[in-house]
Amino acid sequence: MKPSAFDYVRPLSLDEAMEQLAIDPFESKVLSGGQSLIPMMNFRLARPERLIDINRVPGLEGIVPGQDRVTIGARTRHLAVQNTGLQGPLGSLLRTAAAQVGHLPIRTRGTFGGSIAHCDAASEWCLVARLLDAEMTVRSTRGERTIPAADFFQAIFTTAMEPDEILTSISLPALDDHHVTGIAEFARRAGDFAIVAATAAVKIEDGVVTRARVCLGGVSEVPWRSQAAESALLGSAWSAGAVAEAAAAAADEVDPPSDSHGDADYRRDLVRALLPRALNTAGAGS
């Protein structure tokens, strides 16, 4: 469990990082928190020849609330997200989600943007990004572009980023106080990647759902926006029953994988159980 040999560079500015990455993009990897990359290198599942460590690059950290969007620097640690004072339904979603990422040591080093660039279908941040139609800002020596979440997550461990691009920030829509948000997940042990995770943001005006977003993890290669659940909720009177129906619709809609942690049917059961918990409408005893 020792990585194969690699070169290591630690640029002190974003420009320098982009230039370093441009030298040999296909054989290079950006090192952020290292909580996914380093284990993969130790298993020799990843064999980058060069590591571009962005931990000394200024300007990549922090959560900045704007007019109607909130921008999160790519290198913002999970723990900083967990401790954010951001108000409203988005702040509470971010805090609840962050608390479920791995264990404290992992949250201390691992980063928001690292998770998104890594693109694990059960990752909390990929789910939240897809749920809220986040926009990913990426930069390279060729310039800057912004990629919407719908296009960003392409397959397991595969994003729309080019190998010479660095993810610099992620922007999320601010959610007004009419929103109810939440995330619920199931893993066999505390801190493990979820077998299934459900997250939702629902806007309720005068007791009626006027906007519904539901995103599921662990049921497909990339985070799954459940249209079935969203359309079941939209326009319905906000109630536990409506959420349960949406959960059932989502469970019918997905085509999850089977593995040693659970087969497809079990994952559907989890979808049914977790979505109401994400929205805090699950009754006692369930």
Partner: peptide, 14 residues
């Protein structure tokens, strides 16, 4: 002698 009190979560089987 070992004794256990357990609870099963209906929704997830936990």
């Amino acid at each position: 002698l070992h004794a256990a009190l357990v609870r099963i979560d209906e929704g997830t089987g936990r």
